[in-house]
């Protein structure tokens, strides 16, 4: 099955990185968590064409829900993932009832607003969330009762990788299913979709809710592995970075999301280490270069190069 080749390669790459960078497991795990978040954005934006800049709201909801659940109810990691998914999906559904009535700039502004309202609530509700100090005191039980979290982050890495794999497979199956096709249809032409009897509004809410659940899983992973939830979870920066990663990699193909996250995180890591003051400049230049030369993302590089070698008749098409 040819279509499973690229994700399989990425899985091998993750294992190789684990052994190549044994002292950077926290960083690698952070990448995996971001991959889940960017995958959720790919479903919402890449497939369904819902342009949002508030994916952090759903991520943060999952993070705080999973954190609080672990502290007050049950510290089982997998149960916490479900709680995070539920929280993200619920917030997406409720906010989606309003957001999905809008499009374009209005939708972008409203989605940013939802995230900043969440941030404000988390900031004010100090007693529950720890406010600006963050939610502390998360102590997770071993994963599946077998694998205890360790200081080096080995368990965290494998746990996150397993979640990435499951989320990827679920999304890959979804994208091939009737629902996936209908989301592409909505992306292509909402008018035609309505004219074949589809309530575009509810279909968009469905996509946003599923995306919210996956973003919530990313947040929950982060809370469980870092044992901390900070206000940053709801930050605009997080939403914007996720969007940049997706655009870097290429939308609507899932492994574009993975590739974009990898590239962004590594460039970020490397540039910030070499020049703590100007790393943003490097990221900016990278994004500009990709948008300019590969408007469909890094994932489109192989076909673009082939085209160039063949004489570049359809450059940019």
């Amino acid at each position: 099955m040819k279509s499973w080749g690229p994700p399989l390669l990425l899985l091998i790459l993750a294992v190789v990185l684990y052994f190549a960078l044994p002292f950077n497991l926290a960083f690698l795990t952070r990448i995996l968590i971001m991959v889940v978040l960017v995958l959720s954005l790919d479903l919402v934006l890449g497939y369904a064409g819902i342009a949002t800049l508030g994916q952090a709201a759903l991520y943060g909801a999952g993070a705080y829900a999973a954190g609080l659940f672990a502290i007050h109810v049950w510290a089982d990691p997998v149960a916490g993932l479900f709680v995070g998914a539920g929280a993200g999906a619920m917030l997406a559904f409720v906010s989606g009832l309003v957001l999905m009535r809008t499009q374009g700039l209005t939708l972008i502004m409203l989605s940013i607003a939802v995230a900043s309202i969440c941030l404000e609530i988390a900031n004010k509700a100090r007693d529950v969330t720890g406010g600006a100090d963050g939610l502390r005191g998360i102590r997770m039980e071993p994963v599946l009762g077998l694998f205890a979290f360790d200081f080096i982050g080995k368990t965290g890495f494998w746990y996150a990788l397993a979640v990435v794999a499951v989320v990827f497979v679920v999304l890959a199956l979804l994208s091939r299913a009737p629902l996936g096709l209908s989301l592409r249809g909505i992306h292509e032409s909402p008018e035609r979709m309505a004219a074949i009897g589809v309530s575009v509004y509810w279909r968009r809410i469905t996509a946003y809710t599923i995306g919210g659940g996956i973003a919530g899983i990313a947040g929950a992973l982060s809370a469980q592995i870092t044992q901390l939830v900070s206000l940053e979870s709801f930050s605009f920066t997080l939403s914007a970075e996720a969007l940049i990663m997706l655009i870097l990699g290429g939308t609507g193909r899932l492994y574009g999301a993975v590739l974009g996250t990898l590239i962004f995180m590594f460039v970020h890591h490397w540039a910030a280490a070499n020049d703590p003051f100007n790393w943003l400049f490097v990221i900016g230049a990278l994004v500009l270069a990709v948008v300019f030369f590969l408007p469909k993302g890094v994932i489109s590089a192989p076909p673009a190069i082939t085209r160039l070698l063949k004489g570049g008749r359809h450059a940019g098409s």
């Binding site: 199956l173 996936g180 209908s182 249809g185 032409s189 035609r192 004219a195 589809v198």
Partner: peptide, 26 residues
């Protein structure tokens, strides 16, 4: 008004799936 980036086959498959109420199938 069509799904321009989808194939002809997919353009015809979509309305039938919706007509059969299978559009939410995942």
């Amino acid at each position: 008004t069509l799904f321009r980036d989808l194939t002809v086959r997919e353009n015809l498959r979509l309305p039938i799936l919706e007509r059969e109420r299978r559009g939410f199938g995942f």
